[in-house]
Simulated assay, not measured.
Amino acid sequence: MPEGVIPLQSSRPDAAGAEVSAAGAERPAVEFRDVEIAYGKFVAVRDFSLSIAKGSFVTLLGPSGCGKTTILRSLAGLVDITRGQISIGSRRVDDVPIYKRNIGLVFQNYALFPHKTVFDNVAFGLKYRNVPKADIKRKVGQALDMVRLPGSEKKLPSQLSGGQQQRIALARAIVFEPEVLLLDEPLSALDANMREEMRVEIKKIQRETGITAIFVTHDQEEALSMSDRIVVMNAGSMEQIGTPQEVYETPQTAFVADFLGKANMLAGTVSVADGNSATVDLAVGQTVKVATPRPLGVGSAVTVVVRPQKLSVGPAATTNRLSGRVVSTSYLGGSAIYEVDLGGTTVRSNTPISGTVVREGEAMEVGFDPAGCVLLDESGRRIS
């Protein structure tokens, strides 16, 4: 577990308190307990409990409408919760106005004042807090240095690129040293190259300042590359929480497997069970051997989940070989993505190129090792 990160808490307050105590004396920087957010009969967020340690970077990841932005806005004080409680440090804040929560906000559209200079945009929160003029000048200068835009104080937002405007928005959010930094899809308006650069910058600044950050995105690469922990959301509920490696390598549900990385999902039935291994007859008419975390019963319906990176192509020496035909090839330089039809089910392999790229329509074998997969039961949950 990354340093400074507290595990997911149970939805039961007594269990949550035990987890916090076991993690150490330091209180969580942010804590949600049994939070529900409803609009009339529609429940946008249900039974949401989470503890976030000071100085950690946690991402809420999920598709549009899953509740991730609603959770972020409830912490900021922009959305009222229906029940439960939210705390920042030792203070409960679900009934505290936004201006008393000491939170920095960075939005997708920057939300800069177009008629104000960079200096006045960054200094806005400090002036609101009645910080002395000399301190304002010093703090604004420090913030602009941190986002690598020194000397830009007199410019207007219209004179800056999109990436520079986002840096100014970030400087404005951190200049007054908030307890928590909230970032709501802050990179989605940028082009691909600028997004990648800003990922690195935001993470670097978060580490340098030691600020607790909560980041909302639907972009899997952003979540995997930036986070200490990822909270995968679906339909107002938490599907899974863990390190980037944990949620990617060991998805707990079919939703997580599919949403995060588009895993290959091969339905089948256990035909041979032998302790911690099993033979699965796939619905595509082929057979594979898999490692199992516990003995499975013959006849059990399972789904074999294999990540594209674990599905090799060609004559690699793997236990499981599946025959198919290439329906799509995407050349990526050092690797290629193949979509292979196994006979009614299409799988995807993302593999390094060791020779000639296989063309569409050609026969191909794909394979994976017995331990290179995760098994789901009939309900779509990981067998453990």
Rank of each mutant, 00 (worst) to 15 (best):
V5M: 12
L8P: 12
P13L: 03
A18C: 01
S21M: 14
G24D: 10
A29N: 01
K41I: 10
V43L: 11
S56M: 00
T69F: 06
T70L: 08
R73I: 07
S74P: 02
R83I: 13
S90P: 04
I98Y: 06
N102A: 09
G104D: 01
F119I: 09
D120S: 06
D120T: 09
Y128N: 15
R129D: 12
P132E: 05
K139N: 10
G141W: 12
D145P: 10
R148K: 15
P150S: 10
S152I: 07
K154S: 15
Q165R: 15
E177I: 09
V180I: 12
L181K: 06
E185A: 06
S188T: 02
A189H: 12
I205Q: 13
E208K: 04
L224T: 08
I230T: 00
A235I: 11
T243G: 01
T243I: 00
V247C: 08
T253I: 04
F255S: 03
F255E: 02
T269D: 12
T269R: 15
V272C: 13
D274L: 11
N276F: 14
T292M: 09
P295Q: 11
T303A: 02
V306H: 00
L311G: 03
A316E: 14
A317D: 05
V327C: 13
S335P: 05
I337Q: 15
E339I: 14
T345P: 09
T346D: 14
G367K: 05
D369P: 02
L376P: 03
S379R: 06
S379K: 13
